[in-house]
């Protein structure tokens, strides 16, 4: 039995049929050809499949596609607008913040969510905010710097980016205590 699901993906209305056991990741990739989100572990530990679900970053491998009924989804394919790269994408390129590139879409989606919540994060806030995304190539140095650089771009500081509908606009985040 397949279920009919209606969603909004990257601003457009999208309908699909899926089995309840299919993850959102699977449907995005295999049914909708949105292969930008990647499968790295399929159990929520690497963040390569990160997408925005109703304004919040989630591991799409840990969401059933049927749960997405009525949801607003954004994927890496929706980050660049009208032929222009988002400042984060530009800073990732200029700062060589990717090597193999498999984790990059997940990092971009998570970093964009981070900057929308906290437009001027400290280095530690960036590191804490992106701890759910694994990268094995870069040692993270250039990723953290690219996010810092993106936060300094005029576009990133414009209201358009920091106040999208459905997103929280709190600017403070206490660092978690963890030994």
């Amino acid at each position: 039995m397949k279920t009919h699901v209606t969603t909004t993906i990257n601003g457009g209305s999208v309908e699909f049929l899926c089995q309840p056991r299919q993850s959102l990741l699977e449907v995005l990739r295999d049914e909708l050809s949105l292969t930008g989100c990647k499968e790295g572990c399929n159990n929520g530990n690497c963040g390569a499949c990160t997408v925005m679900l109703d304004g919040l970053p989630v591991n799409s491998c840990l969401v059933l596609a049927v749960e997405a009924e009525g949801a607003v989804i954004e994927t890496v394919e929706g980050i660049a607008e009208q032929g222009h790269l988002h400042p984060l994408q530009q800073c990732f390129l200029e700062g060589a913040a990717l090597q193999c590139g498999i984790c990059t879409p997940g990092f971009l989606v998570a970093a964009k969510a981070l900057l929308e919540k906290n437009p001027q994060p400290s280095e530690q806030e960036i590191r804490f905010g992106l701890a759910g995304n694994l990268c094995r190539c870069t040692g993270y140095d250039k990723i953290v710097r690219a996010v810092q650089a993106a936060a300094q771009t005029p576009e990133a500081q414009s209201p358009g980016l920091s106040k999208r509908p459905g997103l929280l606009s709190r600017t403070t985040q206490t660092e978690a205590k963890s030994l």
């Binding site: 949105l34 994927t75 890496v76 394919e77 980050i79 660049a80 790269l85 390129l93 990717l98 971009l108």
Partner: peptide
């Protein structure tokens, strides 16, 4: 680079 930051 552009392919890899846009998911293409």
């Amino acid at each position: 680079g552009a392919d890899k930051v846009t998911g293409k």
